[in-house]
């Protein structure tokens, strides 16, 4: 028997849900609004802010004064670089564990996960000193290495759960049809693995983009990605609301868009398969 949902109830629930959704989203919305105002208008009362005129001025100023684009590119290079490196290392491992599982596979997986549980402060000093001695402080290379290792356990876990879902019967069928190992990997497995690899890439790029412990502690002016660049607004001089908003909007917009595509992967990637 289908349950009958009264229209009134549906409307009440809709109004309630939209109101709460709006409130939760409001800080982001307000940041976007302020980014299109002048500094003088941005500190006025909310109603005055809304009725003042709209401008792209702050975006131009942010780029002009601090070479915003460079920090943006740092973020892009560091987040994609670290995840691609992690995929190169992680795909063979996850592949082997999913398709040729041995007795120790489960233990290896759990051990990899346990490295993720280590709080970053526990290794802050050694990493900092090593980076100092090796000249890796404030370099993109240094951050790519650290973020790659930080995300490697999640990358391998996600890939493993995706690869596990590829039915092994398909492999057997391909083998029966006379496919060699090369064509098996190229024409049968790869097309089935691509969506899983893409999802893994997506979620981990988001995590790296927003990472704010190592990026803040290991960079200064040169290699600073957006997380560190925006942290500099914590002690600014003069009026800065509109500029902070413009810098923030540009920093979160790409990830918000990627994030909308990755809702499902988020649950899967961050719960390590414990919630499906």
């Amino acid at each position: 028997m289908a349950r009958k949902i009264s229209n009134r109830r549906k409307i009440i629930m809709t109004v309630l849900a939209w109101s709460i959704g709006f409130l939760i989203f409001f800080p982001i919305l307000w940041t976007i609004i302020l980014s299109f105002k002048t500094e003088g208008d941005a500190i006025k009362t909310p109603l005055q802010v809304l009725s003042s005129h709209w401008t792209f001025e702050s975006y131009a100023l942010v780029q002009e004064r601090s070479n915003y684009f460079r920090h943006f590119m740092n973020s892009v290079i560091i987040s994609f670089g670290s995840v691609i490196l992690a995929l190169v290392i992680g795909i063979p491992s996850a592949w082997a564990m999913a398709f040729v599982p041995g007795k120790g596979t489960k233990n290896v997986l759990m051990w990899m996960l346990s490295t993720k549980m280590m709080p970053a402060v526990g290794v802050l000093i050694p990493i900092y000193l090593m980076f100092r001695d090796w000249g890796l402080l404030d370099t993109r290379t240094g951050l790519i290495i650290v973020l790659c290792l930080m995300n490697l356990p999640i990358v391998i876990w996600m890939l493993y759960t995706y690869f596990k879902e590829i039915p092994s019967e398909i492999l057997e069928a391909a083998r029966m049809d006379g496919a060699g190992l090369r064509s098996e990997i190229l024409y049968v497995l790869t097309p089935m693995a691509v969506p899983g690899i893409a999802s893994t890439l997506l979620l981990n790029v988001i995590l790296s983009w927003n990472e704010a412990f190592w990026t803040l502690n290991l960079t200064a002016a040169k290699a600073a990605p957006l997380t560190a660049f925006i942290a500099a607004y914590s002690s600014p001089e003069g009026l800065f609301y509109a500029k902070l908003s413009a810098a923030s909007t540009l920093a979160i917009a790409p990830i918000l868009i990627l994030g909308w595509f990755s809702q499902k992967q988020l649950v899967r990637g961050l719960t390590f398969g414990a919630v499906k």
Binding site: I28, W30, T31, N210, T227, S248, A251, I252, L256, G259
Partner: peptide, 22 residues
């Protein structure tokens, strides 16, 4: 759903400064 999930994708330095100042 999208509105509710959005804060998760905002980098920590941005969300902290947005709350602090605005």
């Amino acid at each position: 759903r999208v509105l509710v999930i959005a804060p998760f994708f905002v980098m920590p330095t941005v969300s902290a400064l947005v709350w602090k100042n605005f």
